[in-house]
Design a protein around this nucleic acid. Structure first.
Lengths: 236, 236
DNA sequence: TTTTATTTTTAAGTAAACTTAAATTTAATA
DNA sequence: TATTAAATTTAAGTTTACTTAAAAATAAAA
């Protein structure tokens, strides 16, 4: 599936896809327009255009929805974006807060051929550095395991960090400084509901996070014990 | 120097630059138009537009020339192109005939920030895999040494391959199969002026090339002896 | 429920980057 | 040099992706 669409079209499709996933986010033209930095009128135009191509299901004044075709296209765009993010982070050493912006440009200038090379070079990764899943060549995303945020984690349990949902430098710097990377193993020491703090152990470190931060860190539960785990973290 | 220009503008500037370098190539709008796959009318429009921005020196019916500003811009675009070619070849293992097409897309989607990372990762190379010079961050190209084609090389002398001016898969496949890569060392065994063949030695190989091929391979003369050289080739 | 506010859509217009077709200029040839 | 051929430019029109401003529909508040 090659890229026959303009950058504007690709970004429009991608934005609808991302908003459809995040509950609470409505996908009416105004919402999409705001995200893309264009006027509502422009978004309506685009919606009608893509509706005529059976990429978007569009009814006046209603929320925009991707058709099956549209969703497939979105997944291929997302694949390009996340493979580039992974590549830029792992190979060129760009920081977490730097990769999105660059991938945003590169994703529209990448042939299927080149993408295959990048994918193979990285060993066909299934998640990007934020822990977001990378759709495969056919646009299929591996079924994700159940996750919860750090602020909802249970005392005494052990978890693997599987997602960092932030965006700003400071958050990623904090995570990096405290070894909180995707794939890291942690255990929950204590929850302080009133002050909204969570105390965790990661390796030999013991740190406390406020819910504002903890809510951006997603975990999946492990079956293994904390003792066993702390010495086998993927991230040393 | 960030990219404030469209892809069309960048390609237009780059093409003039490249045509100005190749003697014999005229740089009138029609010639540029043909290369870019657009009509003469479109090229004239663009020429006038860029003239108004002092990027191109344009007089009706005359050849197009880049101004100092235009040349500087061209050099930055060429830098992006050649760094990407080098990266794709060295890091992702793309073949010689594959890198141009991909770099053609990526060069318009690369920030100065990312380019610096790529440049550093590659160790600030001064030539791309074809042997073409990579302008530095300021758009300056290292003064090139005197070169000559393989068909013009002198019997008994030793040379370093410094440029492969081709473009088609077969040519590059042939070169690769015979270890004729940029940086390789060769010596000239015999010249056959009537049949236009050149016999060369490269490592332990002895091969004969017709001028059609030999004319695409550029060399620079070495001072060292052939014996000493054959064991110290950059390319094994 | 009526009024008001917000959002979306329609309508009209713009800029970039093209196109085709006709007019003009330059180059080539008889 | 006059004529013909080739190339370039101008003019007018198209498409994409926007814009602003007015009209229409939906949602919120009184």
């Amino acid at each position: 599936m090659q890229n026959f669409n303009s950058i504007s079209v690709e970004n429009f499709i991608k934005t609808i896809y991302q908003f459809e996933l995040r509950e609470g986010k409505d996908t009416r033209s105004g919402s999409i327009a705001k995200e893309l930095g264009i006027t509502n009128a422009a978004a309506t135009d685009m919606a009608r255009k893509l509706a005529s191509k059976n990429i978007v299901a569009y009814q006046k004044y209603k929320a925009l929805k991707l058709t099956a075709d549209g969703k497939k296209m979105a997944l291929h765009i997302v694949r390009r974006h996340r493979l580039w993010e992974t590549f830029l982070h792992q190979v060129l050493g760009l920081n977490m807060h730097e990769i999105h912006q660059e991938a945003e440009l590169l994703e529209h200038a990448t042939s299927e051929f080149l993408l295959d090379k990048i994918d193979a070079f990285l060993g066909n990764p299934t998640t990007d550095p934020h822990g977001d899943p990378i759709p495969n060549k056919n646009g299929v995303i591996e079924k994700e395991k159940e996750v919860l945020t750090l602020s909802a984690a249970k005392v005494g349990e052990c978890y693997e960090v599987c997602r960092l949902v932030g965006g700003h430098k400071e958050f990623y710097d904090f995570c990096q400084a405290n070894k909180l990377t995707v794939g890291a193993f942690i255990s929950i020491n204590k929850q302080y509901p009133h002050t909204k703090m969570t105390e965790i152990e990661i390796g030999s470190l013991r740190i406390s996070l406020h819910a504002d931060l903890a809510g951006m860190i997603y975990l999946k539960k492990l079956k293994k014990s904390a003792e066993h785990i702390s010495s086998t973290s993927k991230n040393g």
